[in-house]
């Protein structure tokens, strides 16, 4: 089963390699991993999308909590939550199909951010399924390349997803 795990870490030397190494060393999957600073000085947040049965997910969470620089671990999939990732996608265009492609982009609420005579770069955000659907629809036109962030996630409602205090 796919799980999205939110990990609040102290932004200390080697913390990313401790976490990524934990996953590789113990044979856990990482589908995506995104890291950035939070508003709090010295604290970063990682969102890890992984998969495994309940026992594996339980071990992943326990092993993450064992790391000294890890402040908080939450399995966001267990909460009512919002998950987004962003994709930049470069697609081939021709005079004859450009407006057709624009229609698709609008339908998916994407944004055109670069345009040439024979290509477009689109920015689109959403959950993974939406992005994959978008890719599928544009595939026949000729996708030149894509760049994707990993997923990031927050719980719904006023409470913080990972409150470490």
């Amino acid at each position: 089963m796919r799980h999205t795990i939110s990990v609040l870490v102290e932004n200390k030397f080697g913390v990313l390699s401790r976490i990524s190494g934990l996953f590789s060393g113990r044979g856990y999957n990482i589908e995506s991993l995104s890291v950035n600073k939070t508003l709090e000085e010295g604290i970063s947040i990682m969102t890890i999308v992984t998969s495994g049965d309940d026992a594996i997910i339980e071990q992943i969470i326990k092993q993450l909590r064992k790391l000294v620089n890890v402040l908080k671990v939450r399995d966001v999939s267990q909460m009512d939550h919002i998950e987004r990732e962003m994709m930049l996608l470069k697609v081939r265009t021709e005079k004859t199909n450009r407006s057709e492609i624009f229609n698709i982009i609008n339908t998916f609420r994407g944004k055109t951010i670069d345009i040439t005579n024979n290509s477009l770069v689109v920015e689109i955000t959403g959950a993974k399924d939406k992005l994959m659907a978008f890719v599928k629809v544009l595939e026949p036109y000729g996708i030149i390349e894509v760049g994707r962030t990993g997923a990031i996630a927050l719980s719904r409602g006023s409470k913080p997803t990972t409150d470490f205090k």
Binding site: F13, G14, G21, V68
Partner: peptide, 30 residues
């Protein structure tokens, strides 16, 4: 630090003389 990362409880690379005392204190505690 990289070589031993999977086989330690924790590790430190000292980056200034001011932090030595804190690191030693933490290391023995951990």
């Amino acid at each position: 630090i990289g070589i031993t990362r999977p086989i330690v409880k924790h590790s430190y690379l000292i980056s200034n003389p001011e932090e030595i005392t804190t690191v030693i204190k933490e290391a023995f505690h951990i």
